[in-house]
Design a protein around this nucleic acid. Sequence first.
DNA 1: TTATGGTAGACTGTCGACAATCGACTATTG
DNA 2: CAATAGTCGATTGTCGACAGTCTACCATAA
Lengths: 219, 219
Amino acid sequence: MGKLERISMKDRLAAELRRKVLSGALPPHFRLTEQDLADEYGVSRAVVRETMLVLELQGLIVSTPYKGSEVASISRTEVSELLLPIRIHIEQYALKEGMPLFDADTFESFERVLVAMEQAIHHQDIEAFNEADMRFHAIIVDACPIDSARGIWDSIHPRIRMHFALQTGRTGALVEFLEDHRRLVEVFRTGDVLASIAAIKSHIIETNTPHLGLLDETH
Amino acid sequence: MGKLERISMKDRLAAELRRKVLSGALPPHFRLTEQDLADEYGVSRAVVRETMLVLELQGLIVSTPYKGSEVASISRTEVSELLLPIRIHIEQYALKEGMPLFDADTFESFERVLVAMEQAIHHQDIEAFNEADMRFHAIIVDACPIDSARGIWDSIHPRIRMHFALQTGRTGALVEFLEDHRRLVEVFRTGDVLASIAAIKSHIIETNTPHLGLLDETH
DNA sequence: TTATGGTAGACTGTCGACAATCGACTATTG
DNA sequence: CAATAGTCGATTGTCGACAGTCTACCATAA
């Protein structure tokens, strides 16, 4: 059953602000002041400050001492050249280490996410779809026995999503995205690690490439 | 001349604790309580809490709600399979984007670090050498026009260093490390980006490969 | 003895208030 | 008029105190 865990105000506020940033409700360069946020959400400034610190280290906001904070802006080359390759590596590694540990519960989680995607499509709720998409990949990363993988992923992933959340592009292709995730789960079920690693890479690239993919990597 | 910037207590304390963790003064699983740290360094718990949050997001400590924090432990596979590839990618990318922007000041910074390394060797000060090593690579990452590169690097790099700082191995080969950095700077001076990218990769790999790995750990 | 429930101490989570800093505006002065 | 010094409001940096939570220990009862 559910774990009924206690969630600190800091984490709740961070999740809420992250959601607003990723949904575009808080656009890049939007100014954030601690007192205003504290008043708006009914928490103390200490909580707000810790929240802002988290979001800053995750690159969603930038703050300068004694001046204030604002929602970060993000460049396309940063995403394609810096963040995406790192994200791919993390998820590939997580899959390599974690896939042998996938059990019935894991696949049940995947299925729940797929259902959530279906419902999101049915309600035309792009935000809910993105949320489900994030949970899908979080399952992969969390399955990795190296705990810190999730932490690194958390510090990479939001900026990528932020970049594409502000594009309208994905709207129409939601059904294809769903199918793509379905295929991924099927590959996972075969237990073929190498195939899964390849699949997740092309999945991430295609999912995050605005309709003509031409990014290459070094090494 | 120097910039005489104001540094918050949070940042100073973070630097100090990071130093102690990397030097082994605070070994893995060492328990950290907020009040003790606040008393020890003469700051308030709020400062300590923000500091701990930074160090936690950088993976140097782990904290569980209402229970406390302790210095993180780190496994060899996490370093070699997860962290090192990411670090290599970041520094390669930073080099690719930032090397064309290297100017006289940049190389002067490199030279200062090399001098610091010489002095560290002369004084047999391993900690100072490691500090200089970190500054060397920070110059590279900071030269990258994408600001967030440094942030990601900061969230990756300390754990790598932590892993090897706890090994004694590097002691004898300090001179070789110095020469290796010298060679790197020479490659940078040629302006050959591809050669530099290749050089930084092998440098990082060799520098972080324990001559023949015969240490293994739990987790 | 063992299991249950409760109590105490230590610690983290949260809060409101005070101090330091910044940027813009204003006044003063040559 | 231009340049400089001073002031003010807004915002962040820092602090000490209170409230909530966990763990270990102890008492009590079957």
